[in-house]
Design a protein around this nucleic acid. Sequence first.
DNA 1: TTGAAAGCGCTACCAC
DNA 2: GTGGTAGCGCTTTCAA
Lengths: 339, 339
Amino acid sequence: MPNIKGVAKLAGCSIATVSRCFNAPHLVRAATLAHVMAIAQQQKFRPSVFGQQLRKNQTGLVGVVLPSLANPVFADCIGGIEHALNQHNKRMLLTTTQYDSTREEPLIEILLRQKVDGLLLTVASAENCTALASLSTENIPYVLMYNHAPGYETVSIDDRKAARDAVQHLLKFGHRRIAMLAGFLTASDRSALRYQGYQDAMQEAGLAALPLTEVDFGARTLEIQLQHWLNKMSSCPTAIFCSTDLLALGVIKALRERSLRIPQDISVIGFDGLEYGQLIDPALTTISQPNGEIGRTAAQKLLKRLDGEKSLEQPLFLAHELLTGHSVGPPKVSGALAA
Amino acid sequence: MPNIKGVAKLAGCSIATVSRCFNAPHLVRAATLAHVMAIAQQQKFRPSVFGQQLRKNQTGLVGVVLPSLANPVFADCIGGIEHALNQHNKRMLLTTTQYDSTREEPLIEILLRQKVDGLLLTVASAENCTALASLSTENIPYVLMYNHAPGYETVSIDDRKAARDAVQHLLKFGHRRIAMLAGFLTASDRSALRYQGYQDAMQEAGLAALPLTEVDFGARTLEIQLQHWLNKMSSCPTAIFCSTDLLALGVIKALRERSLRIPQDISVIGFDGLEYGQLIDPALTTISQPNGEIGRTAAQKLLKRLDGEKSLEQPLFLAHELLTGHSVGPPKVSGALAA
DNA sequence: TTGAAAGCGCTACCAC
DNA sequence: GTGGTAGCGCTTTCAA
């Protein structure tokens, strides 16, 4: 790849003129412009980003830190991010923590080293993320996605309210013994909020919230917990609220393996709105979040700040929606009586 | 962020020494090193990539071009890529074409402008991708994933053979009227190979291959085709081979909506091995591809070339596997007789 | 409208 | 062991 010097020499002009042809063509005489561009084309010359970045002190790169791509929630989110970034000619440097919060800080460090212009993040817990503080110190703009944290710029749904909606949906069907299942709360501040929403709904209904069951997706804790519940039918929950669709799908599969019918024997409600939940039978009832829009909106907010707009540092909540499938029904009579 | 000059001044040494402290600490007297590093730390100085990239003429960035992230196949693949890149301290610049092959060339161009050190790509059709030619011209290393193209460096499974395996599995159950459903072949050279594999298996069994049915995921073509088949039960396929699991899942849902039982009324086999296929009931029988490994291996090959190793420009085929679910069974008797 | 030249931050070569 | 300095490719100011 030839450099600006070579083109200038061939075109018989200065490198300044070549530069202007690319960056401010209106300042160049039409004939000169055409001539230079012809040479540039023929030499396959494009201004190198190295010089540009060095001069402008920015890369046009946005760093993205997400827990994982295995969850379609984040895959969809990335779609939204990419869309927004494309429109502003920015690129995405993608990294994932694999739900290991100790990797957040080093990843952010790496991205800063790469001189990303800004960051889009989903961390385990915004309020306990020391790395975020260093971002403010370095004065590098960032927007959080899915996380909740007053005083930070965040884009998410109102997880607490959404969880409450989900549980109220179960209550409407007459459920009383409603359990909640989640991944480890330490890995997700939104899950903690969802548990609060669960507690809200239970309390409003005058019911005792059950302690949260945290399951490890890798290990067999889900199986063990289910078995534990099913062993004592009299106290077995008639409905299970899962903090994610992935978990709900796993629960449904496990229940089916035990020949339990959904929702006749037990109701299951999820959280996320994955399209895969709609492919199973019965279709999963769940809370749907606008993942693409979360990503897109967060990216747009970041882009505005990169354009010099002052940040509001206010959480932005997008609308969620109850997606009514067929995995929730009235509780089994024996369960209803026992309640 | 302070620069190397500031640190040098504060440390009372030259910028060369500061640079050495970071890049070749063994060449610096221990005391000097400690002193400089202390100042650097206190000033929060880190060598900027701008200067480094400019000098070394490389960015440590690898460009990734994929059709879409909505398909977990590619999400898993990215996981593998990220893993391999991390180990070599490289980062991923991620872009997607949204299955629009006309976006391949501009995206590659953008990534080249960003001075990525190399590229990892899945294009619609490797043999018809003019952009690849320009890569060779520019002498920038790249590895194709999922694509097939003799003479190129590719990592994939043997799609043709895998499809043949899938269809043979159906044949073993006694199916004779086996149809194949795929997305548009123009969007995926591997789908074309899968159709060849289908033809291979049919021919070996002495059966006539049916013409391929290409469906548009967005439109209702899938619904229409199914209705078309079902209207003439005597010629309705007893088994459907879908070129992707996403398609198979859609087919199963559509069949279920028509109250058809799987596999009693009709068998369905997919291709990809998505975990979501195992969450439905009956679990999807399918061909499983090692997506993470495809990504990881492709990245490793690329990294080797970046390290100066000569490329073999040979396709690498990883092993696929038949994942036996419960979506395939013997054909319905009426169907069997009619065959 | 164009050119000359400074300088962005760094690395690496050569001298000492 | 350390310092001086050229130069990577470009943008941009100033002058012509």
